[in-house]
Design a protein around this nucleic acid. Structure first.
Length: 471
RNA sequence: GGCGGGGUAGCCAAGUGGUAAGGCAGGGCUCUGCAAAAGCCCCAUUCGUCGGUUCGAUUCCGACCCUCGCCUCCA
């Protein structure tokens, strides 16, 4: 068995393999955040997907080089900079830092490279220059530089690889800017945007005059700079399919740096959108959640991550607060089982239980069918609990089960948090309660249980004596 | 208007041409001084609607209804 993934290029589920089939390394790029504000839960669905893809590839024995860009210059950012009077750098660095904190809170692995657009102005200019040399870019009357789709197609390239696009059926947006009237054709897009007064001091010199990069070009420039002109896997949200990714392909393949016949990217993966409480997330509906909002409501990053990973990435997913509460219960059950296995294994080691590993891989190999994977995991958990309850769980079995669960939970990025030792004061209260119980002073023992609860600890009486758990 | 996803129990969500995984919530029981945890059992004759193909469709085809997304520098 091997991993099969839907490829937006072919609109089919394909066996995933790197461009070099002999290679066990995967070069992957995921479009990162625009740091104009705190990222919201919908943004994070995509980043959790990228993280899961990376972890699963690594689970499958690939090494990965994972790139995620930070878009730190863009219309909305410039508007905020103008409104707040803060310098661009200062404005974006705060949100960039906040983004990485959130990314960490969701237990997403740090990508190997996290390039910022503003650090890649030179390669961007170089790439635009190359497109101009090849006759695919032109400077219009507004001094901006555009990519000519007509010329691109004239060279034998295909525009519309990711979606069926008929240029004449594109409907002009309602917010077409004045400066875009200068384009030769509606579908052409900006590579370099000439400086306008509203840009303030956000501009860079270039052969075409002062200005700033267009949106799509940064991903082409940074992706190719860090991963080479052709790479294996590119991810992003489904809204980026068109025009962003289509334009990225056009620019990158238009530059013609790839080896003959090689594509810019072999495999495109797009994550679907999120609904919140059944509706499109919007500030006016009050269902617009940043990760920070959810943490403030008392949920953990781990719970959010779990919930985001309960549905298939290509289906829109309804994110609800009820769902988050359910995530907490489900995780507690998994952690409880793991803790019992750990106790039973008592430090013994064994090869991972193949039952769990196989159920998990089979589901995940099938286009990352996480829902089916959870089905297998919970079936397995029930079986482990049954063995534990019937006293049929040997130390070796427990060690094997634990080893399997560590692999699986690690791949999902949901390793149980390490247990916190109860402070001496709490232990003393628990001992006092146990003494009261032995003396059949249940009133006193219940008082002590309440007291412990106030301190944030739950006490469970097991056949092996009382156990303390963090509430 | 063009293109592309979806509609499965109270909620979330897999899946299949042969009679519906899993999670959460809910109910019963076992265990427990009581709880908690765990276990066992129950919880969709039914998969948006209507037709068609078939021995048989939730799964294939057609129409319709609803919903979401892209075509706007929104993940």
């Amino acid at each position: 068995m091997s991993l099969k993934l839907f490829n937006t290029l072919s609109r089919q589920v394909e066996t995933f393999a790197p461009l070099d089939p002999a290679s066990r390394s995967v070069r992957m790029y995921c479009c990162g955040p625009t740091v104009h504000d705190f990222a919201h839960i919908g943004n994070f669905r995509t980043f959790v997907l990228a993280d899961l893809v990376r972890r699963y590839l690594e689970f499958r024995g690939f090494t990965t080089t994972h790139v995620m860009n930070i878009t730190d210059v863009e219309d909305k950012i410039i508007r905020r900079v103008r409104e707040t009077g803060v310098r661009l750098q200062e404005y974006t660095s705060g949100y960039t830092q906040a983004f990485f904190e959130d990314h960490r809170t969701l237990n997403c692995l740090m990508p190997h490279h996290v390039p910022r657009a503003t650090d890649y102005i030179a390669p961007i200019i170089e790439l635009i220059g190359r497109l101009q040399e090849r006759g695919l870019a032109y400077q219009a009357a507004d001094r901006s530089v555009y990519f000519s789709i007509t010329k691109y197609c004239g060279c034998g390239h295909r525009y519309g690889q990711l979606v069926a696009i008929q240029a004449d059926q594109l409907r002009p947006g309602e917010r077409v800017q004045n400066d875009e009237y200068a384009k030769e054709s509606l579908a052409d897009f900006a590579l370099w945007k000439a400086r306008v007064p509203e840009d303030g001091d956000v501009y860079w010199p270039s052969p075409w005059g002062e200005g700033r990069p267009g949106w799509h070009i940064e991903c082409s420039a940074m992706g190719m700079a860090l991963l080479g002109p052709s790479f294996d896997l590119h991810l992003g949200g489904e809204d980026l399919v068109f025009p962003h990714h289509e334009d990225e392909i056009a620019q990158s393949e238009g530059a013609g740096l790839q080896a003959h016949g090689a594509p810019f990217v072999k495999h495109w993966v797009h994550g679907a959108f999120l609904l919140v409480e059944g509706k499109k997330m919007s500030k006016s509906l009050g269902n617009y959640h940043t990760l920070r909002d959810l943490l403030q409501k008392g949920y953990s990053g781990r719970e959010v991550r779990y919930l985001l990973m309960t549905a298939h990435y290509r289906e829109s997913f309804n994110f609800t607060l009820d769902g988050l509460a359910g995530a907490r219960t489900a995780l507690a059950r998994l952690d409880e089982c793991a803790a019992k296995l750990e106790e039973r294994a008592a430090g013994a080691t064994a090869a991972a239980d193949p039952v769990l590993i196989e159920a998990f891989s089979r589901a995940m190999d099938d286009d990352l069918n996480v829902a089916a994977a959870w089905g297998g995991i919970f079936d397995w958990v029930r079986e482990q609990n049954r063995l534990l309850a019937d006293n049929r769980m040997s130390q070796d079995l427990a060690a094997a089960a634990l080893a399997a669960w560590r692999q699986v939970s690690g791949t999902l990025g949901l390793v149980p948090p390490s247990g916190v030792e109860a402070p001496a004061e709490v232990v003393a209260l628990a001992q006092e309660r146990q003494a009261a119980r032995k003396a059949k002073d249940f009133r006193r023992s219940d008082e002590l249980r309440d007291e412990l609860k106030r301190l944030g600890w739950l006490v469970e009486d097991t056949p092996k004596g009382p156990k303390l758990k963090r509430a």
